[in-house]
Structure formats: C-alpha cells, structure tokens
C-alpha cells in the first residue's frame, strides 16, 4: 500500500548532483513507501531536492531497511570521528 509515511528535513547548506552539474539542495524528503526501482514493496526513500527547482531537481536513493539503518549508523560514526579529531565545521568558506 501507499503508507504515506513521509518526513521532510530542511537542509541549510547542501549540494546534490544527479546529472552533469551540481545544484543546491535545501530539503531531504524521507519516506517509507513504494520505491520506484528497488524490487521491494516498501523501501526507505530519500529525495534530496531543491524545492524551487521543480520535480526534476532531485537526487534520489531507495534503500532496504537494513541498508538505511547502516547508513544512519555510518553517518553518525563518521561525524563522531570528525568531532573527536576537532575537524567538524559547518561554516561555509567565504
């Protein structure tokens, strides 16, 4: 079924690439619903989008539940290592 389980995360600073060029992404739309390509009934879907760029301004991934959980853990682990080394930064270069 269509679960309609979806959440939207604002992205204050990000870039995405789905063709030859990079573009600004300002939202990540996360859903657990029908994937378009992954051969599962439901998947964890993430669309990194530019909300003003129209439906095509999108970098999409469709993940199994296990893969999604591993991704979350991996992101957290990488950020923790960077923090331990004192190299975390979120201020854009001038």
């Amino acid at each position: 079924m269509c679960t309609m389980i979806t959440e939207r995360a604002g992205i204050d600073l990000g870039r995405g690439k789905s063709g030859p060029d990079w573009f600004v992404v300002n939202e990540a739309n996360v859903s657990y619903d029908h994937p378009y390509d992954l051969p599962l009934e439901h998947a964890l879907n993430i669309d990194f989008v530019n909300a003003a760029g129209g439906p095509g301004a999108r970098v999409a991934v469709e993940l199994s539940v296990e893969a999604a959980r591993r991704l979350v853990q991996t992101i957290e682990a990488v950020l923790a290592r960077a923090e331990q080394r004192g190299v975390l930064e979120d201020i854009p270069l001038a």
Binding site: T6, R8, N29, S31, P55
Partner: peptide, 19 residues
C-alpha cells in the same frame, strides 16, 4: 497541479507533500 517532469519525479514530489 504539482508541476511537470518525469512521472517518477512528480510522484516523488507529491509523496513528499503528503499525497
């Protein structure tokens, strides 16, 4: 009413807005 593009891109956009 949700814009034009490939059916997948438009469908994904509608999904994000709650269907």
């Amino acid at each position: 009413r949700d814009g034009h593009g490939t059916p997948e891109d438009v469908g994904s956009s509608v999904r994000a807005s709650g269907g």
